[in-house]
Amino acid sequence: MSVRILALVGSLRAGSHNRQLAEAAVKLAPEGAEVEVFEGLADIPFYNEDIDVADSLPAAAAKLREAAQAADAFLLFSPEYNGTIPAVLKNAIDWLSRPYGASTFGGKPVAVIGTAYGQYGGVWAQDEARKAVGIAGGKVIEDIKLSIPGSVVRFAETHPADDTEVAAQLTEVVARLHGNVGVAA
Rank of each mutant, 00 (worst) to 15 (best):
A7N: 05
V9S: 13
G10N: 13
L12I: 13
A14V: 10
G15K: 13
S16V: 06
R19L: 15
Q20I: 05
L28N: 02
L28H: 07
P30M: 00
E39H: 03
G40C: 05
L41Q: 01
D43L: 13
Y47H: 07
E49D: 15
D50E: 11
D50Q: 13
D52E: 07
S56I: 06
L57T: 14
A60D: 02
A67Q: 15
A70Q: 07
A70D: 13
L75P: 06
P79K: 06
P86A: 09
L89D: 03
K90T: 04
I93K: 12
D94C: 10
L96M: 09
G106F: 12
G106I: 03
G107C: 13
K108C: 12
P109E: 10
G114C: 03
Y120N: 12
G121Q: 02
Q126L: 02
K131W: 09
G138T: 08
I141M: 12
D143C: 03
S147K: 01
P149M: 07
G150R: 04
S151W: 01
F155S: 04
H159T: 11
H159Y: 11
H159K: 04
H159E: 15
D162R: 08
A167I: 01
A167H: 05
T171R: 14
H178M: 14
H178P: 06
V183H: 05
